[in-house]
Design a protein around this nucleic acid. Structure first.
Lengths: 121, 121
DNA sequence: CAGGATCCGGGTAGATACTG
DNA sequence: CAGTATCTACCCGGATCCTG
């Protein structure tokens, strides 16, 4: 049993953590879910759709997702510039799992809220 | 379509985010995965098993998980004190989804690493 | 339009010391 | 053993301004 747990022990080098950290951040899942609803989206479209995100964080998030190959970025040589983001195959393969979590969260939200209240009372 | 996205828009009041934030943190998933491997675990057992976590953060994480009803805490009136943590039914219902993510992460880790290298070059 | 650069404040994790 | 208390440092995110 002790050995069984070793695989989780080394947080720094854990591949799971390394990957999960990416969409455990504040905005990544949101972007992925949005890109799953539309075929492509532009920067400002995402910016408007995600209430509260700053330009900076959207840019950072998109870069991170692009760097991981979860989304693709297509830039058109036009003026004004146009950039389209879409889910990659890899990103699409991740999405069902995220949606499962979303469903679980929705299904358990009320109960969890009650637990929290009872706990903090 | 615009309306379709509204549900993700309000980050502050989003139930999904509200729930996902809890185990999107640094340690929660790790604790849940560990508690899934053993029937019960004590504080120091977890502390040793999770390399790098501080007492404080373990305590905070356990409280949060207990507050959400994902784990249960059982304290024995002994000296020295003994406290056992175990997965609750609710926590157990969440775990399959986490494990799916873990599998996905493991399956895609190498490819993602390559993407990152290529991207940062 | 799609970002980049910079500056700044607050929260959060970590270290350390202490306790029932 | 199983935590709490306090203090500090750092990082992340937001705001603002600027640009190809």
């Amino acid at each position: 049993m002790e050995n069984n747990l070793e695989k989780y022990v080394d947080v720094a080098n854990c591949p799971v953590r390394n990957v999960l950290d990416r969409f455990g951040d504040k905005w990544s899942t949101l972007v992925l879910l949005l890109l799953n609803e539309a075929p492509v989206m532009r920067f400002n479209q995402l910016h408007k759709a995600i209430n509260g995100i700053s330009q900076k964080m959207l840019a950072v998030t998109l870069k991170s997702l692009e760097g991981d190959g979860l989304i693709t970025r297509k830039q058109y040589a036009e003026i004004p510039p146009r950039v389209e983001y879409k889910l990659s195959t890899r990103g699409a393969s991740l999405l069902p799992h995220i949606e499962n979590l979303v469903q679980w969260a929705n299904a358990n939200f009320d109960a969890i809220e009650e637990s929290r209240k009872a706990y903090n009372k």
